[in-house]
Amino acid sequence: MLKSYLVGVLLASVLTAIPFGFVATRTLPPGQTLIVIGVAAVAQVVVHLRYFLRLDLKSRSQDKFIALCFAATVLFILVGGTLWIMFDRLPYRVVGDATTIS
């Protein structure tokens, strides 16, 4: 149990450092940084679900069901919905950003 928490903390730290690092150093153009941020966010949500909320697929079937419902809600509605709405109107967003930056 302790080990799994520590693995979680390590992974979460790395996945936090990556997006903050890219934003701070501006090594990539905004559009690509945005994608990095999105991927890191999804990965980190999964890490938290797995190591802190301790969702695994070995528990009893009913509890697995409810936990999966939660994971689906978080991933598809919370994260997915936000990303969807964000990228749904991406063209003028990124263009807008690029023009203001340059």
């Binding site: 997006p19 905004p30 940084t33 941020i37 966010a41 938290h48 909320l53 919370l78 930056i101």
Partner: peptide, 21 residues
């Protein structure tokens, strides 16, 4: 508590960082 941190991950990823690019 861990759920709130998941929400925070979304906040810094989709609210703050995209606006600091």
């Amino acid at each position: 508590w861990h759920f709130l941190i998941i929400v925070w991950i979304n906040i810094f990823s989709f609210v703050y960082l995209p606006r600091l690019l």
